[in-house]
Design a protein around this nucleic acid. Structure first.
Lengths: 308, 308
DNA sequence: TGAGTTCATGAGTTTAAGGAATGAAGTCAG
DNA sequence: CTGACTTCATTCCTTAAACTCATGAACTCA
C-alpha cells in the first residue's frame, strides 16, 4: 500500500513559503512562478484537508497546524537532501551499522563519542535504535547491541565494556550540611527509578547500613521515574537525592550541577557489554565498531580508575 | 534554489524494492505495475548517478551504496508520513481517551495493536485501565470499555467486535499420543480459570460428551488460575490442558509453543463488544477509536475465517 | 489617484507518470 | 530437452501533473 504523502515539490514550496511568508518570494527562491507556488500550496491544503496559511489582505499568516507541520517537513527535507547528496558523493564500502542501545547510556555516553567514530569511519553510516532488553538478532534489524546486565545473551558474543560505580548525587544546595553518616541520607527525598527498584536498597546495604527493614518506607517513598534522564533531571532540579551510575552524570558532576551526596561509590555487580551475533564477527563494520568501542570503554575505565 | 531531491514516488518504490528485493512484489505492494517501479528505480539511479541494485539473473542485489541510502530514506518516509497523517488527523481536541478493558484481552490483543492507533492519532493520549465486569460509566472515569458477554450494558451502546472460538490447548509434548476421543481428555490435568468456572463443562457438552455428571470431579480438579495469561503460561509449561479463546493464544499456536489438544473449536455464545455511553457517540476521540477498533476487529475475524 | 504588489485563477503547453504489451533471459517440472 | 512461468527492461500510448503567461481582485502607499 502506498503511503499518504504529498509531492516533494509541494513540500518544498510550503517550507519556502513558511520562511518567506510570501508565495512570490518563495517562488523566486525555487525558480518557479508565483502561480506554481500558489497552486502547489493550494493542492497541499486540499490534500491535507485544512488551510496551512490564512490569507490576510495579501499577507500570509501561518496557521497553528501549519506551524507544526513546517517544523517536521523542514527536518524531512533536510534529511532527504543530505542522504541524497551523500549518496551522490559516495565512494566507500562501509554500509549501515545498526546499533541497538539503552536510551540513557546511548544518549549520554555513546552518542557524544560517535563523532569520533564517524570521523574515523565516514563510510559507515550509523543507525541508532533503542532497546531496553535482550532481543533476538534474527528478528530485530541490528548489527550490534549495548547491554547492561549479566554477560548472558543467547547466540551472541558479549564483549565487556565497563562496569559502573553507583553514587548518590543531588543538587549542590540540597544538603543543609555535609552528611556525616549514611543514615542521614534517609532524611531526604530518595528519587526512584522504575527499572531499578532495588537501587537504593542495594547501595545502602553495600555501604553497610543495617536494619534495612525498618527503613523500607523511606527507601521507596520518593517520586518514581521511568528513565535515567528523568531521574537525573529531577536530581538537578533539587527534587531529591538519586543513586546513579557515576559515568552517566560525569558531566553534571564536573560542572557542579550535581554533587556527590556522599563519597561512597559502590561497584555494581553487572556491567555494560557490546553484544553481536557470532556470525557477524568478521563483518568489517561490526569489527571496527567493536574495536573502537572497546578502546573508548578502556579509556573511560582508565579515567575513572587512575593509577594509585 | 531548489533542493537536490528525487520524487517521493521514486523513493517509495526504492524503499519497497529494498524490502522485497523484487520490483514485481514492490509493485504489488504499491498498487503499481512492475513497469512503473522499474522505471522509477532506473530514474532514481540516473538521478543519483550510480546503480542502487545490481541485476543478477532476474534477481536484485542491493549495492552497498544503496544500503546506506535505504536506511536514510525509510526514516525520511516514516517521518514525512507521520507528520502528514498527524496533520490530517489534527482536530486540536484529542485529549485523553480512557479505555477500560479485560486484562488478558487487553494485553494480548488490544495493546499490541495500539501502536497503530497512536501513530494515527498521536494527539489522543491513551489511558488504559482494567475492569473485569460491567460498571456504571457515570462512576468510572472511562470513555469506552471492552466487554465480554451478552450485548447488555444499561445506558450504553454495544458494538460487536468479535466472537471467540474455545479450543483445548496444551504443550506439544504433553499428550502421550494423539487423542482419539474427547473422552481421553479427561485423563489429563484440566487447567481451570477462576472467572470462567464453567469453561470445561461448556466446551465438553458442546462437543457432545454425555453423562457430564459422572465426570464433575475430573472436570474441576486441575490447578486454578485467576488470569488467562497465567493459564496460558501453565499450559505452555506443560502443567495440563487449557480451554481458551483461540485468538488469545494465536501467537503460541503459530510458534508451536502450544498445540491444539483436539481440533474441535466451539463457538462461544458470547462475544467481545466495544461499549460506550450513548451520550459520547459524537465525541471525536470516541468516534475515531470506535471506527479504528471495529476495523481491527473486522481484520481479526477475517483472518480467523478465511473464505471457503 | 495612479503605480506597484500580492494571491488566485483560466488557458495553453510541456513534462512526468503509469498501464499494456512485448522482449530477453532465467528457472523448473515433466 | 521443452514448455510454462517468472523477472527486469523497454516501447507505445494515454492521461495527469506541472508549469508559464496573462489576467483579475484586492491591497498599500506616495
Amino acid at each position: 500500500m502506498r503511503r499518504t504523502l504529498p509531492s516533494l515539490m509541494a513540500l518544498q514550496c510550503f517550507e519556502a513559503a513558511v520562511r518567506h511568508l510570501s508565495f512570490t518570494r518563495a517562488a523566486e527562491e525555487l525558480n518557479l512562478t508565483q502561480s506554481a507556488v500558489s497552486r502547489q500550496i493550494r493542492g497541499l491544503e486540499d490534500f491535507i484537508g485544512r488551510p496551512l496559511f490564512e490569507r490576510v489582505k495579501q499577507r500570509l499568516v501561518l496557521t497553528v497546524a501549519g506551524e507544526a507541520y513546517a517544523a517536521a517537513i523542514q527536518d524531512v527535507l533536510d534529511r532527504a537532501e543530505a542522504a541524497t547528496l551523500q549518496l551522490m558523493a559516495y565512494r566507500g564500502e562501509g554500509g549501515v551499522l545498526t546499533v541497538a542501545m539503552l536510551p540513557t547510556f546511548g544518549s549520554r555516553w555513546l552518542v557524544p563519542r560517535l563523532v569520533d567514530f564517524s570521523a574515523r569511519y565516514p563510510d559507515i553510516q550509523l543507525n541508532l535504535v533503542t532497546q531496553v532488553r535482550p532481543f533476538d538478532f534474527d528478528k530485530v534489524e541490528a548489527d550490534v547491541a549495548i547491554h547492561f546486565g549479566p554477560a548472558l545473551w543467547p547466540g551472541a558474543i558479549c564483549h565487556r565494556l565497563m562496569g559502573e560505580d553507583i553514587v548518590p548525587v543531588c543538587a549542590p544546595g540540597l544538603l543543609q550540611k555535609p552528611l556525616a553518616d549514611v543514615r542521614e541520607l534517609l532524611d531526604y527525598t530518595l528519587l526512584q527509578h522504575t527499572t531499578r527498584p532495588q537501587a537504593w536498597n542495594d547501595w545502602l546495604s553495600a555501604v553497610g547500613l543495617q536494619d534495612m527493614d525498618t527503613h523500607q518506607a523511606s527507601l521507596l517513598s520518593g517520586p518514581r521515574f521511568e528513565h535515567f534522564f528523568m531521574v537525573i533531571q529531577a536530581a538537578i532540579s533539587g527534587l531529591g537525592i538519586a543513586v546513579l551510575p557515576q559515568f552517566l552524570v560525569a558531566e553534571e558532576l564536573a560542572s557542579g550541577r550535581l554533587v556527590l551526596a556522599l563519597d561512597q561509590p559502590v561497584r555494581s555487580q553487572h556491567a555494560y557489554y557490546l553484544v553481536h551475533p557470532a556470525t557477524r564477527t568478521d563483518v568489517y563494520k561490526v569489527r571496527v565498531f567493536r574495536d573502537w568501542l572497546l578502546a573508548q570503554a578502556a579509556q573511560e575505565e582508565a579515567a575513572l580508575s587512575p593509577p594509585g
